[in-house]
Design a protein around this nucleic acid. Structure first.
Lengths: 343, 343
DNA sequence: GGATATGCCGTAAACGTTTACGACGCTATA
DNA sequence: TATAGCGTCGTAAACGTTTACGGCATATCC
């Protein structure tokens, strides 16, 4: 005898009452409820996931989907760890468990999400690294699976999303550089169709145009979003006859490799070239210090969790209604890397 | 009508036969098996996780347990991403899904693992960041839950484990430094009781003793295993009257902060102090280049997965028997950071 | 005091799948 | 021809939980 039966037998009451007591249903005496909770704790009873899920459809699990694999990663750094931290503080209040769904780079993300959904793996999903056109969104929305996207997309299904305000970042960074006299400003960009890349490139273009400048195509340095990509950018950038005098980076890790590539050529950020990037634990310790934009990943995680729960019937009572679509602002952290000024 | 019933109705055969066909059971005609597989693909049928798990006990999911939370992380970097990559290539062959079980820093790891097991969440577990004495191991072994540990522990339950060879690392690094004339050699260490910290400290002590040197307690710089910890080490190290002339680091990220802290004081690795660390994507791009020890995380992941599957009855036919207990060797990557020599 | 409401609890069906068991038709053997 | 064996398939019971439903007390009302 095991499971809820054992608990019921031990207490000499029916399994129905035990279940109701544990799940906080109304029609159960407070005295017996306490007896049940006490016994459950003593016997270490934990409801079986499969049984519960099969009957009620709820698993008590929220999945955070992320891609793995050598190329795409680089994003996979401490970024997600910070977000997880925030998400979990919210979920803990509802006895929800957060698990990371690791989609291999060899598997199609849409097929993966379909599999997860069909298997009834999680009650809700958080998807990240949204593509400009993202089939996952359409699929989830159509099936009415509760989900929230970290990142916008052209695929609009009236779904909730959160995103970092890369437009504001591009504008602020470029305005700052233009104000310091820069005219030939380069930017970095991912070479896949992840949405933030598009947003960043286009807004950079507009910000430059507003200052009477144009973003030439060869001033867009596409790279893998990791340290090696940054190193590669430095090499390509330095061998150009019309070197840019400043560069704005869209990824946290590329600054590391960029610094290295520049220093090998004796080029020093803040003295010979202006660099603006995004904040991260290791970017913080670059020398010379990186002028960067950052935000509280934990707060993003909290907002992400709340946005998701607001769409789930079982939890939405505790959260403000309405599908949230929210841009999260960056804050400037002044460093030395953009001290380089032109007349 | 949905699920397997729909598929059976569509094919006009019983659900039992459909199930047997899909699961590769012997007593089913090859022709009908093909019909079933074809129809399943067309209708996009995926067996419901809960139903399957409830009946057969198998979920098709392997959990990789890792801690989240601001303090402990720092390990959470690209390290795990590399391991995941290897694990998944093995699991893909068996239609097993890898998910990361994120244990919040506010929850007791043992309670967490008990909850996961009692819920019947996964068929097998990979646990990481093993403690010197780790209650998770005893619990899992006692319940006969298939698992493998990434990291050794004093808690020996005859269980399979893999670990990086930190003894060899300590010995090689210290021998190298001693050969270059160093006598006052410092090491870094975590301040919790994670097993690798203990191993590293003790082996460093032995390696020094073998050279007639002693590891003074105040030459052990305990810190958080991240960039900030490295920065802190630099500050503490520099204000000492009897500054060490060399330091060996046990973590991948601390080198970043250490470099920064040293450079602020005008101390340059390889010229004024010798530094040896562990390899990582960002350590690779430090300047001056870091002399470090590294290995293929992907291969570690592959070995980890194979070690786990070898203990699971459903899969062990494909893998060599015997519980694996294996140390993984580091390889030296020579850099400039330990060029500093003493007479 | 009878009818009605209320609080609490037990019963049993249902969720979707796997699998032990038995049934059926066919072939091979005696 | 009778029997045994084999290949294939359908039937139905289980897995552990939740929950609709009904039943039994006790309290409340006229």
């Amino acid at each position: 005898m095991k499971g809820i039966r054992r608990l019921a037998q031990h207490l000499d009451i029916s399994i129905g009452t035990v279940s109701r007591a544990l799940n906080g249903k109304p029609d159960v005496n407070e005295a017996t409820r306490e007896r049940v909770l006490k016994a459950a704790a003593e016997l270490g009873y934990v409801p079986n996931q499969a049984g519960r899920a099969l009957r009620s459809g709820a698993t008590g699990v929220i999945g955070f989907m992320m891609q793995t694999g050598s190329e795409i990663t680089g994003q996979g750094d401490t970024f997600f760890m910070g977000v997880f931290d925030g998400v979990q503080t919210v979920f803990a209040r509802h006895q929800l468990d957060l698990v990371a769904l690791l989609c291999s780079s060899e598997e199609d993300p849409e097929a993966y999400v379909q599999r997860i959904v069909a298997r009834g793996f999680a009650d809700g999903l958080i998807i990240s690294a949204t593509r400009r056109k993202d089939p996952r969104i359409e699929y989830l929305a159509q099936r009415h699976i509760p989900f929230v996207a970290l990142g916008r997309s052209l695929s609009d299904a009236g779904h909730p999303w959160l995103d970092l305000d890369f437009e504001a970042y591009a504008t602020a960074a470029i305005d700052r550089l233009v104000a310091r006299g820069h005219r030939r400003i380069a930017i970095s960009a991912p070479h896949d169709d992840v949405n933030l890349g598009y947003v960043f490139v286009e807004q950079s273009r507009r910000a430059l145009a507003a200052r009477g400048l144009t973003l030439e195509d060869d001033m867009i340095f596409r790279s893998t979003p990791n340290e090696a990509g940054g190193y590669d950018i430095a090499k390509r950038l330095l061998q150009r006859p019309d070197q840019p005098t400043a560069i704005v980076l869209i990824n946290e890790s590329v600054s590391i490799g960029l610094y290295r590539g520049l220093s090998e050529a004796g080029v020093r950020p803040g003295r010979d070239i202006a660099v603006i990037g995004l904040n991260s634990p290791h970017a913080t310790f670059l020398s010379p210090t990186l002028t960067c934009f950052g935000l509280s990943l934990r707060n993003v995680g909290i907002a992400l969790a709340e946005a998701l729960l607001a769409t789930m019937p079982a939890y939405q009572a505790d959260y403000p209604q309405g599908t949230v679509r929210r841009l999260w602002p960056f804050e400037l952290i002044e460093g030395e890397s953009d001290d380089y000024r032109l007349p």
